[in-house]
């Protein structure tokens, strides 16, 4: 049986160019990831800054033997944002679509479908596979049972599961970082750069609940799906995706590699993850068909 791949998903937060360089240098040199996504997914206003950094990082990661995937915007709106999606989709690299805007120009060429595209059933997965989808990262809401059913029906597609990180739960055209600071999206002053994992959102009773990241809303809890090799194989999962956070992602990658290789147990993996500096408690309800906020096993 093929080894289960380990993907470092696209960074969802607004990090400085310097921080991006340092982060991906570490990923290139030391990490267990075999595939790394680069590119802005959340906000087109961040692109003029990060777009300057990606070309050098692509070269560096490829030189280190990583497969690079170029991720595209989840909610392209302006002509410039749409143009950027179309340009990336015409690129020779493998690309990730996070909205159907890029699909017409990419049809027939291989692509990755991100978890923000609604693929909830075998029929939707088959439809995209027929147009060139090579990997589909399942929507975060789906249970392991549903994922297994889709994977069994679509054996020519690589099924990827969102396995680590704050869950990307919602998108809006409104920027919540700007709203929180009394600003509008068009004059946001890039206040989201202050929160490398998004800004915590608590209930009126002080209970950690969600996190805001520009136009995106994430879970406060950090989703952690750590299957045994047998469980992953039974559901025909071919890749796990870890979503970048400010914690040590190289160690997080090692923890997942070890559990996928059967070197450690899921319980040991969860215990090691809890030793990292995480932005929230570990949750895993979605995988079990429960509410996404349900805590992972202690």
């Amino acid at each position: 049986m093929n080894r289960i791949g380990l993907t470092l998903g696209p960074l969802l937060f607004n990090w400085s160019a310097e921080r991006l360089r340092g982060f991906y240098e570490g990923v290139a040199r030391h990490s267990a990831f075999d595939r790394v996504h680069l590119g802005e997914v959340v906000c087109g206003k961040r692109m003029p800054f990060s777009d300057r950094v990606w070309p050098e990082l692509i070269g560096m990661l490829e030189d280190a033997g990583k497969e690079v995937v170029l991720s595209t915007l989840a909610l392209p709106a302006t002509p410039r944002e749409r143009r950027s999606v179309l340009e990336i989709c015409r690129d020779g690299h493998l690309v990730e679509i996070n909205d159907l805007t890029g699909l017409p120009v990419r049809t027939g060429l291989p692509f990755v479908v991100g978890p923000l595209v609604n693929v909830y059933s075998e029929g939707a997965a088959r439809f995209l596979a027929a147009r060139g989808a090579q990997t589909i990262c399942m929507p975060v809401e789906l249970s392991l049972a549903s994922i297994g059913a889709i994977a069994a029906a679509c054996r020519d597609v690589e099924i990827e599961v969102f396995a680590f990180g704050r869950l990307p739960l919602a998108l809006s055209s409104r920027c919540y970082h700007a709203r929180l600071h009394g600003l509008h999206k068009d004059s946001c002053q890039f206040v989201c750069e202050r929160d490398p994992d998004g800004i915590d959102v608590e209930t009126l009773e002080g209970q950690p609940f969600l996190a805001a990241n520009g136009i995106q809303t994430l879970s406060h809890g950090v989703h952690a799906f750590c299957p045994t090799p047998a469980e992953a194989a039974a559901a025909r999962i071919r890749r796990l995706r870890l979503s970048p956070h400010s914690t040590d992602m190289v160690i997080a990658g090692d923890i997942y590699r070890a559990v996928l290789d059967g070197v450690t147990t899921p319980a040991q993996a969860l215990a090691r993850l809890r030793e990292l500096r995480l932005p929230g408690e570990l949750v895993d309800g979605y995988a079990r068909g429960a509410a996404g906020c349900s805590p992972a096993a202690p």
Binding site: A74, L75, L116, N118, P139, V140, E141, L167, L169, A170, L171, S172, S173, R174, F209, L210, T217, S219, G285, Y286, G289, A290, A291, G292, C293
Partner: peptide, 15 residues
């Protein structure tokens, strides 16, 4: 306020 069809807030809290 969220883009409809792209919101999982309810299932995160309630399933």
């Amino acid at each position: 306020p969220m883009t409809e069809g792209r919101c999982a807030l309810s299932s995160y809290a309630t399933g």
